[in-house]
Write a protein that binds this DNA or RNA. Structure first.
Lengths: 233, 233
DNA sequence: GAGTGGTCTAGACCACTTT
DNA sequence: AAGTGGTCTAGACCACTCC
């Protein structure tokens, strides 16, 4: 047996989602239907669906059905936005400025994004917490994959909702690398702090459902009112 | 049906591990034996074991058996030590100094540790990378739960191996909160940097197999040669 | 009431490890 | 060869949602 049957069923469903045949939020066939379509037993179809649920690709609800994961503003915030108040309280920072530019990709960006794009969109935004500018974030995506992104201003609070709804791109994983830096002139001005203030620097690579790197972003965060929180297991 | 049968089987096994009846590294009974002992079918025992594996409590190997997770230096490093070189390379920093003290618990420590200990051990260590002092870490544990810990110097590189082997305490989860700070006099001296150098400050609470907070620790990290890396899903 | 996922059973066969 | 986990099947009943 080369690959288990349940894996073939998983691959088939992922391909259907990736191709747009199954849209985010839509309902999948029932376990029995999938079993019939793919020629496996209901138990095997069930195992496939449970594994897809664990990977966050579908959501199952007893009595209702199985649905393709829809990236809502709430779930995006919950999954990928790790900044919290020092006491652990959730935060919803407002957007205060936004600049989208189309420019040539740097060598590192070209190599580090799927499709090796020649040009990229750079989205630079400042987020504010209770009126205090707190996060300066710069996201970069392929200009050929996200055509016309600069025409869509104002962009939503969470970009991943836009990627999903307008470009069929579902973000499921993000690798982050965090360091501490001192505010330079530009970031100090944007965040209204003195140069030399310590900031968290979060570098992220976001991956789509096929595991392709789709977005690179750097967030500079004031750390007096925010902390990066994560649970390791 | 109040609780599913597989959950009762899980609870039973966790209790056996927690009580020391099943030691880390030891082999569990086979699926069939567990099924017979608990009065469920083999399929249900199997489901329990697979869920325990997903929670990191046991490890399963085809043809060999199911084993209680043993916290080895390698696995501890891999799971909970998130500091990497900027290029993503794994790091194994050496210990260069170690001080263990027994003192009264601060109010926050008393509330934030299982058993509300009156006294705690404080373990203060400096880790070095290629001869450069890079991490200053201060761990705090209950003195009543870890009796005689100050007599065990030198402590192993990864404390969680000690907790497991000498105190039957298996660490399975750690919540971390990360901020950026400036080096003060003490940390600057320990890490051989100037005061005002930006440092990563990682505050951790570690939980045992029953979900009880067992250790609190703060790590101050030089960020020129190290970055905190994590994958979000 | 019909349809969905959630739990559970009792078997079968295969792949792997150890003796 | 014996024992282990890995895959798969074909049924059963229950709990929940929606019409």
């Amino acid at each position: 047996m080369a690959a288990p049957l349940y894996q073939k069923v998983i691959d088939r469903i992922v391909a259907q989602i990736s191709s747009g045949e199954l849209l985010p939020g839509s309902m999948l066939p029932s376990e029995m239907q999938i079993a019939a379509e793919t020629g496996v037993s209901q138990g095997t179809a069930r195992k496939s669906l449970m594994m897809l649920e664990q990977h966050g690709i579908v959501r199952r609800e007893q009595g209702r059905g199985t649905f393709v994961t829809a990236r809502t503003p709430d779930s995006s915030l919950f999954n990928f936005f790790r900044l919290r108040q020092p006491d652990g309280q959730m935060i919803r920072p407002e957007l205060v400025s936004e600049v989208v530019t189309n420019r040539r990709a740097l060598a590192a960006e070209r190599k580090g994004l799927d499709g090796e794009p020649k040009n990229v969109y750079e989205i630079r935004r400042v987020r504010s917490l209770k009126g205090v500018p707190s996060v300066l974030e710069t996201a970069v995506v392929s200009a050929s994959r996200f055509v016309g992104l600069d025409q869509r201003a104002p962009l939503p609070n969470t970009l991943y909702v836009l990627y999903q709804q307008n470009y069929g791109c579902i973000i499921l994983r993000a690798d982050e690398s965090i360091s501490a830096v001192l505010a330079d002139g530009e970031s100090a001005a944007a965040l209204n702090v003195g140069t030399g203030t310590p900031l968290l620097c979060v570098d992220r690579v976001a991956f789509d459902i096929m595991g392709r790197p789709v977005e690179r972003r750097r967030s500079l965060c004031r750390t007096d009112s925010l902390a990066y929180q994560v649970s390791l297991t």
